[in-house]
Simulated scan of single mutants.
Amino acid sequence: MEQFAAVAVAHFLALLIPGVDFFLIVRTALTHGWRNATGACLGIAIANGVFIAGAFVGVALISNPVVLDTIQMAGGIFLIFIGIAFLRSNPVIAPDRGTGVKSRTWLRNFGLGLASGLLNPKNAMFYVSLAAAVSTATPLSLVLYGAWMFAVVLVWDVFVAVVLGSRHSLGYLQRILPWISRFAGVFLVLFGGSMVIGLVLKFLG
């Protein structure tokens, strides 16, 4: 029980730190509504689930330096691309907030969320480190840990999407949405650029 509590707390604290996935959810919720943003939330959660499963079953490939370097390069390029798209866009809050989810938009956001999660090497490294800390746990415990973390990622991301994409939030966020989009774009470009530059310097060194 103490080990589970430690794992749960460490994992949740990591979720509270704003990162690439957070900014993607925020912008998606504000521009497309929280229902469409659940696509990105599910994609991010599944990506985390892939890394959780890989780390907990002891797949060495996930922690292989070559694999991590490949993920880092692809992830950096992806983040730069998304960041530039954010900077070039003119985001507005969707006026129709109460209708059903449009499948095309939802699926597109799902794909973005899945790519964002899978192409972030920090996700892989975090779960590999966490798996090493619970290496003595029983297989059943690892299954429970993994299921818990997947559920927490999904619930937390949906919570963020609902809070920021609700009608109550729109009046406060309408004016600052362009600034949020620009800030997210700059953050993603800088973050992705640092990943690519860091990898290039690693190869050159």
Rank of each mutant, 00 (worst) to 15 (best):
Q72D: 07
I197R: 11
M149Y: 10
G54K: 07
R97A: 10
L190Y: 12
P91Y: 06
L119G: 00
R88S: 12
R175N: 14
L190T: 12
R27Q: 08
V101N: 07
Q72A: 15
F150M: 11
N123G: 11
I46F: 07
I197G: 09
R35G: 10
F187M: 05
A74E: 09
G198V: 07
I52M: 03
A45V: 01
S103D: 10
I84C: 15
G100W: 01
V128P: 15
I93G: 02
Y145D: 01
A29L: 13
F23T: 02
S194T: 07
V67T: 12
L201A: 13
G192D: 01
R108A: 03
V92E: 12
V92H: 06
S135P: 00
V128M: 10
S194D: 11
G76D: 03
V66K: 13
N109A: 02
T31F: 00
I77T: 02
F51T: 09
F86D: 03
Q174K: 14
K122N: 15
A131P: 07
K122I: 10
H11Q: 03
F159D: 11
D21N: 14
F22K: 04
T136F: 14
G58F: 04
V163Q: 08
A47G: 08
Y127D: 12
L118N: 02
G33Q: 01
A37K: 01
H32K: 11
I62N: 06
F191H: 09
H11T: 00
V101W: 07
S141H: 14
I71D: 05
A6P: 12
I46G: 00
Y127Q: 12
G146Q: 05
F4T: 03
P95F: 06
H11W: 01
V162R: 02
A37W: 03
W34R: 06
L188R: 01
F51Y: 15
Q3D: 11
